[in-house]
Design a protein around this nucleic acid. Structure first.
Length: 484
DNA sequence: TTTTGAGTTGTTCGA
DNA sequence: GTCGAACAACTCAAA
């Protein structure tokens, strides 16, 4: 009798390298059945947005190719995960299902049901860490509580010692004698009906190989100048690994090791430069840590006082923000970059976030929802942390008086205006002196540049100085500066 | 238990 | 243009 197969359920770990669940399945005597299950209705309020689905379609295609190189393939199913896994196990006689953990509250609840259900059927079910450097329950304060401040959290991570080595890619994955039924990836209808994602392909290569290319780029071109360039949206100075990490096309552990290895090879004096990037990976860990321990935070402010914040319901302003028509060039450039590429530079995410929440007084939840639908790297832990931070209502949030000025942020981080000109062609002829505040430009300058405010480009929809004071008032009204 | 030091990302004002 | 101070007081985390 041939040994029973093992099912490997792929979720946010669409890769074959450093994959604990796959490696464990391969180590068993029988064949391996890799499966992806499309069940967006099981993702709570956070079923994948348009940009994410575009990425997922391509990533699944790539995963199938990677598996085929190892003598296997990807089985694709749709429907409730437990039901599909039970069916698949019945069809194939599988004795075990392995998967990599997820940490979103609805995913944990679903996975718990899945595990119980499978075990009831006499099927072994085991989850593995395929996503994090440190599990959220392995890092805690001396009082065994979760961390709420980044710096001590990061120190605690570093104090745990070296991150475990990545696992080798399996040489071969044993195939079953016959493959079970599989849905064609096209049938999941993940690609948009309108071809708005056409431009995405020039910028992104979803899948494991694309992720490896970005890692090489990080190591060769980006990481040494990371600290100086990462805040400049007019430079290509970030890792651009976020969507690859979200889908687990590369493991955080592998990125961590690659950067650490490079660091060890550098002269002592150059080593600290690489810490800047490593710190960002620990921010990702912190986001998972917070979501795991405070599972209500995607919807609710962590600081309870903010539940009473007098947010404005202003659909016109929200729409102007979404479309990049606020009249503030750095804000509009960011929102248009997001719309056209499914991504926005991190510095600009903070600027547009501050503008939505503090200048327009529209809730951070509305911003999070828009990002969720438009970002290819939409990730619940990171999105939640980012928006609560800029909203001032999260763990380790910005002080309430920290309100970004879109003009000075533009001058500081896009000093030549190249980023604005790239994404706002109607301002492309405007001289640098006025690029971040065209409303101050002399009429003659505007005329020469072909800019007519309110016609070719919007006049500012709010006055920042006045909006800032209004935000401070609103924050005072809920006692933002007092205990929560 | 109490105390102490510290806390990603900013802005404005006045000298 | 550049610099330092004020913005406020809290909460966290560790000693």
């Amino acid at each position: 009798m041939t040994p029973a197969p093992t099912i490997v359920w792929f979720r946010h770990d669409l890769r074959v390298s450093d994959h604990a669940a796959l490696a464990a399945a391969v180590a068993r005597p029988g064949p391996v059945i890799p499966v992806f299950i499309w069940s967006p209705e099981e993702e709570g309020h956070w079923s994948p947005g348009g940009a994410t689905k575009w990425w997922l379609h391509n990533s699944l295609t790539q995963l199938d190719e990677q598996l085929q190189k190892l003598g296997s393939r990807l089985i694709v199913r749709q429907g409730p995960a437990l039901e599909q896994l039970q069916q698949l196990a019945a069809e194939t006689g599988a004795a075990a299902v392995f998967w990599g953990r997820r940490y979103e509250p609805f995913a944990i609840a679903r996975d718990t049901r899945v595990k119980t259900g499978l075990k009831r059927d006499g099927i072994a079910a085991e989850s593995f860490n395929t996503t994090l450097l440190h599990e959220p329950w392995d890092v805690s304060t001396k009082e065994r509580k979760p961390y709420q401040v980044y710096t001590p959290f990061s120190k605690a991570c570093l104090a745990r010692g070296a991150v475990e080595d990545p696992l080798p890619t399996p040489k071969r994955i044993a195939a079953p004698e016959t493959w079970p039924q599989s849905v064609a990836i096209d049938k999941l209808a993940l690609l948009p009906k309108l071809p708005w994602a056409a431009g995405f392909t020039t910028l992104w290569t979803p899948g494991e190989e694309g992720a490896q290319t970005q890692l090489k780029r990080l190591l060769h071109d980006v990481v040494r100048a990371y600290v100086e360039r990462r805040d400049r949206p007019d430079c290509d100075g970030t890792s651009r690994l976020s969507p690859h990490l979200h889908f687990g096309e590369i493991s955080a552990r592998e990125v961590w090791h690659a950067v650490r290895t490079l660091q060890a090879e550098l002269p002592k004096s150059e080593q600290p430069a690489l810490d800047g990037y490593l710190r960002q990976l620990l921010w990702r860990e912190f986001a998972f840590h917070l979501l795991y321990h405070f599972p209500e935070t995607p919807e609710q402010p962590l600081r309870a006082k903010f539940a009473a914040f007098p947010w404005h319901d202003n659909p016109r302003a929200l729409r102007a923000w979404q479309r990049g028509r606020t009249g503030y060039p750095i804000v509009d450039a960011g929102m248009r970059q997001l719309w056209h590429t499914g991504w926005m530079h991190n510095r600009v995410r903070m600027i547009v976030g501050s503008f939505l929440v503090k200048d327009l007084l529209i809730s951070w939840q509305a911003g999070a929802a828009w990002f969720w639908d438009t970002l290819v790297d939409a990730d619940l832990p990171n999105n939640t942390l980012g928006w609560q931070w800029i909203g001032g209502c999260g763990a380790d949030a910005a002080p309430y008086f920290r309100i970004f000025n879109p003009v000075s942020q533009g001058d500081k981080f896009d000093p030549l205006g190249d980023y604005v000109r790239r994404w706002i062609p109607e301002l492309s002829k405007l001289p640098t002196d006025w690029i971040h505040h065209p409303w101050d430009a002399p009429a003659e300058v505007l005329r020469t540049a072909g800019v007519e405010l309110g016609e070719t480009y919007p006049a500012p929809i709010v006055d920042h100085a006045a909006a800032r004071l209004a935000a401070l008032e609103a924050l005072k009204s809920i006692g933002a500066s007092e205990a929560s």
